[in-house]
Design a protein around this nucleic acid. Structure first.
Lengths: 203, 203
DNA sequence: CAATTAATAGACTAATTGGTCTATTAATGT
DNA sequence: ACATTAATAGACCAATTAGTCTATTAATTG
């Protein structure tokens, strides 16, 4: 008989998903056709649907993958020597929209989640997890006296995520705006929100 | 002969556009079919395409209309007795996502603009105008000593818009989160960013 | 009222698109 | 070597969808 390496199967799936990701980024979830994805991945339709049940499933898979990816990277920060400090750096990275933290599909994913219950579930579940992790960082910061203890960590975490989401809109609305500058100001804004009443954090 | 009221024509267009808006809000720009729009507007396809050249044109028109609408409302604030104060109230309204300032298509519009040059142009042009108006409010605030003069009004305006955009994501990511609460915190965050070095704005 | 043209309907279509079916090739284990 | 099954191709299809065409009804004006 034959019993083939499931790792190879997974690898191919990832490969196809990456090609799909490029197509989706270019044309949106609905604008990208399966045949465009086939072309990008250099496979036939039969082959494509051998790996994914439907285009819907591809959209769900890539969304899940991207969100998971962001989660993993965020969680890894927790293991560093200075969690809160590294966390702030992570936000910076996310806001500058350049580090591999960046996900050009974010707006599409959010919009899609407004119309598609499956996607909504994926996004919401991922948000629950992400929010919890961010809240943990904020609590850590509160313990260290670097974050205002009046802030509700869960709520503040939601705000952090919302600001990162919002930062994606800047590139769309004003492509000429310097991302470095806007990112820095967004970060400053968050840090001021975090700052305990005493410390003014002028710079 | 016959020479019919162009106002009536415009009115019907608006009517159809409103129906389309409901469909788009429900299913997204691509998920909503023209026949769904026909059903919602209670007209026939022939009739629909008598008023709009294409679905694309409908998407562009509704986007333009929504953005113009937001602009008009924002501009009107400038005419009030206390522009900056009223402006802050306007932001509050936008963040609470309830006042008629709210536009459930915002995320869809931004996502679409990433893939569709026509939409990109509309969004970017509208942003230019909106940003200018917001920057004017901030300058007013600076003159009145209510806004940090170190802030670049144009850049800060971009941040304000980005935060409002980002606030839309909250409802998607965490529908259970209290909008009142998150809106209040977002507003506080912006006000702290605006605050001149001296005033701490503790509340 | 008659003529004219706008408003409206709705059957129809051309093209696209997600997805299937069959066939072929290439691994793998015995 | 051979049997078995996975990997892959690509022709094909059913359904959907944006958009058209023709016909009818309703205003408007002279």
């Amino acid at each position: 008989m034959r019993k083939v390496d499931p790792a190879k199967h997974e690898e191919k799936r990832r490969e196809i998903l990456e090609a799909a990701g490029r197509c989706f980024a270019r044309s949106g979830f609905h604008g990208a056709t399966t045949s465009a994805i086939c072309a990008e991945a250099k496979i036939s339709p039969g082959h494509l649907f051998h790996y994914f049940d439907s285009k819907e499933a591809m959209i769900a898979a890539i969304t899940q993958a991207r969100l998971d990816d962001a989660m993993v990277r965020t969680e890894r920060v927790m293991e560093s020597a200075d969690p809160f400090g590294t966390f702030v750096n992570g936000i910076k990275d996310a806001l500058l929209t350049k580090g591999r933290m960046n996900n050009p599909l974010l707006l599409d994913m959010l919009a899609e989640a407004r119309h598609n219950p499956t996607m909504a579930e994926i996004v919401q579940e991922s948000t629950r997890q992400g929010q919890a992790v961010v809240a943990a960082f904020l609590r850590k910061g509160q313990e260290e006296g670097r974050v205002d203890t009046n802030l509700d960590p869960e709520l503040a975490a939601a705000i952090v995520i919302s600001v990162i989401d919002g930062s994606q809109s800047i590139a769309v609305r004003d492509p000429k705006l310097d991302k470095e500058e806007s990112g820095k100001l967004l970060l400053k804004m968050l840090l001021r929100l975090f700052a305990p009443p005493a410390a003014a954090d002028g710079a």
